[in-house]
Simulated assay, not measured.
Amino acid sequence: MNAPTAGHAVADLAPLPDTLIEPIVRAALAEDLGRAGDITSEACIPADARFAARFAARAGGVVAGTDCARLALAALDPTARLEALIADGSTVQPGTVIARAEANARAFLSAERVALNLMGRMSGIATLTAAYVAETAGTRARIIDTRKTTPGLRALEKYAVRCGGGANHRFGLDDAILIKDNHVAACGGVGPALVRAKARAGHMVKIEVEVDSLDQLAEALAHAPDVIMLDNFALDDLRRAVDLVAGRAVLEASGGVSLATVRAIAETGVDLISVGALTHSAPNFDIGLDAD
């Protein structure tokens, strides 16, 4: 039976390399297999049995993480085959068959939960991101993530944000300078923090500073940062900030962002809206695995 036709897919979505995904998958398998392996499958399933099954969506949303399922199967059975019928970043309806796979039965059943956990987590993030992106349609604002990710899963979760049509903020502490409120407090002000950052930053490193008032914004502008984060600004102050900056820096709105508020924030004219909920509060996307 053919899979139902998928909806819109995110354009130009580069897949994650297997070399990045595989250690994460193997760590998850090691956690699940424990000290003695899958004693249920070994007790019940003949060693040479084969098993074929389909991964299918049980809800509507955006798919992400099929490579995790492929690599989970391959880690336990190098002869396993998985055919992805729906590309990551595609919108699916309930019942859509996402992938079909065949492998040694013991290996398949041992890898099943890791495959579904990672696909469900990533597809849930992609689905929630797509909802935020839809709310901001027609504005200049882009939805971006934060570092509020599950330890060990950051690369997968940030990829899932891209699958949902969002964009990534910095990946870690080492790829951009982001001066937060506590940095400002420790330095004695926005200006001194920016002076020190500019003296230290390499020519390839961008500098962002967080401000919580229009006065701090004016102080930041005097030092020409690349990006300014407007933290928990009221809507009127966001609009004033956009007018004051007038394109001299990229403006990121942060704090108090939800599906109920994101449209109004986007309409103020900011460039970016960062949403921690994309990765720390996304519900799991229900994917079933059933024998073919």
Results as ranks from 00 to 15, higher is better:
Thr19Arg: 14
Asp77Gln: 00
Ile24Asp: 03
Ala49Asp: 06
Gly34Cys: 05
Glu42Ile: 07
Ile24Gln: 03
Val25Gly: 08
Cys44Asn: 00
Ala47Gln: 12
Gly34Leu: 06
Ile45Phe: 03
Ala72Val: 05
Thr79Val: 00
Ala36Met: 06
Leu29Pro: 03
Glu83Asn: 14
Thr19Val: 15
Val25Ala: 09
Phe51Arg: 14
Leu71Pro: 06
Asp32Ser: 11
Ala80Arg: 02
Asp88Met: 09
Gly37Met: 05
Ala84Met: 04
Ile21Glu: 05
Arg81Ser: 12
Thr91Trp: 02
Arg58Cys: 10
Phe51Glu: 05
Leu76Gly: 06
Ala72Asp: 08
Ala30Cys: 01
Val62Thr: 14
Asp18Pro: 10
Ile45Thr: 08
Pro17Glu: 12
Arg54Ser: 14
Ile86Leu: 02
Leu29Cys: 05
Gly89Glu: 07
Ala59Lys: 09
Glu83His: 04
Thr19Gln: 14
Ala87Pro: 11
Ala87Gln: 14
Cys44Thr: 11
Arg26Leu: 11
Ala28Glu: 09
Gly65Tyr: 03
Ala53Gly: 12
Pro23His: 12
Ala64Cys: 15
Gly37His: 03
Thr40Gln: 00
Ala87Arg: 15
Gly37Glu: 02
Ala30Tyr: 01
Ala74Gln: 15
Thr19Ala: 15
Arg81Lys: 12
Ile24Ser: 07
Leu76Glu: 07
Ser41Lys: 11
Thr66Cys: 13
Arg54Thr: 11
Ala80Phe: 09
Asp67Asn: 13
Arg50Trp: 01
Asp48Gly: 03
Leu20Asp: 10
Gly89Leu: 11
Cys68Leu: 11
Ala56Glu: 10
Leu73Ser: 07
Asp88Thr: 06
Ala57Asp: 01
Thr40Phe: 02
Val62Glu: 02
Asp32Val: 09
Asp32Ala: 11
Pro46Asp: 13
Ala28Asp: 10
Asp38Ser: 04
Pro17Ile: 07
Thr19Tyr: 10
Val92Met: 02
Thr19Trp: 11
Ala72Lys: 07
Arg26Gln: 13
Glu83Leu: 12
Ala75Arg: 04
Ser41Thr: 15
Val25Ile: 12
Ala75Glu: 05
Ala49Met: 01
Gly34Trp: 01
Gly34Ile: 05
Gly60Val: 02
Val63Trp: 06
Ile45Ala: 02
Ala56Thr: 11
Pro78Glu: 15
Arg58Leu: 06
Pro78Tyr: 07
Ala69Pro: 13
Thr91Gln: 12
Leu33Val: 04
Ala49Tyr: 08
Ala28Trp: 06
Thr66Gln: 13
Pro17Thr: 04
Pro46Tyr: 00
Arg81Pro: 00
Val92His: 04
Leu85Ile: 07
Thr91Asn: 01
Ala84Lys: 06
Gly65Asp: 02
Ala74Phe: 10
Thr66Glu: 05
Pro78Trp: 04
Ser90Gly: 08
Ala56Gln: 10
Val92Cys: 01
Gly65Ala: 03
Gly89Gln: 09
Glu22Ala: 15
Asp48Phe: 00
Pro23Gln: 10
